[in-house]
Design a binder for these strands. Sequence first.
DNA 1: TTTACTGCAAAGGGTTTGCAACATG
DNA 2: CATGTTGCAAACCCTTTGCAGTAAA
Lengths: 164, 164
Amino acid sequence: MTNPRPTTQLIASNVHQLAATKLAAVGQRYTANRRAVVEALLILPGPATIAELLNAGQGLAQSSTYRNLVVLEEVGVVHRIVTSDDHGRFELTEAITGQHHHHLICEQCGIIIDVTLDATVEAALERSLAQGAANHRFRGLHHRVDLLGVCRGCDGRAGPPVRQ
Amino acid sequence: MTNPRPTTQLIASNVHQLAATKLAAVGQRYTANRRAVVEALLILPGPATIAELLNAGQGLAQSSTYRNLVVLEEVGVVHRIVTSDDHGRFELTEAITGQHHHHLICEQCGIIIDVTLDATVEAALERSLAQGAANHRFRGLHHRVDLLGVCRGCDGRAGPPVRQ
DNA sequence: TTTACTGCAAAGGGTTTGCAACATG
DNA sequence: CATGTTGCAAACCCTTTGCAGTAAA
């Protein structure tokens, strides 16, 4: 298991172009606001909260940002992650970044760190999940692997009791 | 990957006794309401929403149920699952049921189906995650593997666009 | 000039909390 | 009787929506 390449090293122009294409395919525009959201997601390290996006992007309205995230999610540019720390987090999709990865989620502070598994484990997992899905006539689309625990920053210090 | 034994086949008295013990360890009582919640979780097939618990248990107050779930979660009897379908779901912990399992989550209706992976896949996954956690000085506590997709009931019929 | 997009303010809705009454050890 | 528990109602807070105005094709 290794760290995925930081998104900041992705070729931003490609990401923007892909995003624009995906939006255009359903008759939507790649506006300055939407570009700012994607830009913020490229820069921020790991999945970002709305608050972080509003800080990073300059002068974005909250409601527009939520709305744009919905649109970006619908066209497969952005992915929403829900944990139990009371606010959603957003990241660029694997279709955009080309990087299949998983998450270390801190149960104290909610921070999410991206990691990758090695290919053989991924493959075995895929097979096993596919079989289980078949048993239930469940049409599996994608899997999610998270490691819940305590991040380096929170470990040791007394954190607030966080659920999950 | 096989189906886990339905929780209804668990020996309920053991579960209740364990729950009572865990509560007693922190000076809390295993009241009728709390027992009713655990009972409902034993009976209901898979992780249950608050609404389902309120229906199953007879005359439970919403606020008390939320509070009891918090307490039961703190002592390790109950586990909260958050997906993006707008309400949390609750299940008995593996410490109580002794059944490590994972989830098939329907992105249309939010239903969650329990499944297990075979042991070799689990072991490989554990190792891989442990290594990744070490790289980030992240103290991993437990993992979560979900398969997102469309359940048998929702497949085919036009569902509402559900996020994630 | 039609349709998509924006931003303010208000509404929604699951979850949490204040508080007085109750139950339990 | 001291402490944990309950339930009603109100508050919370993240998220969504109504609506009038703006921008882009």
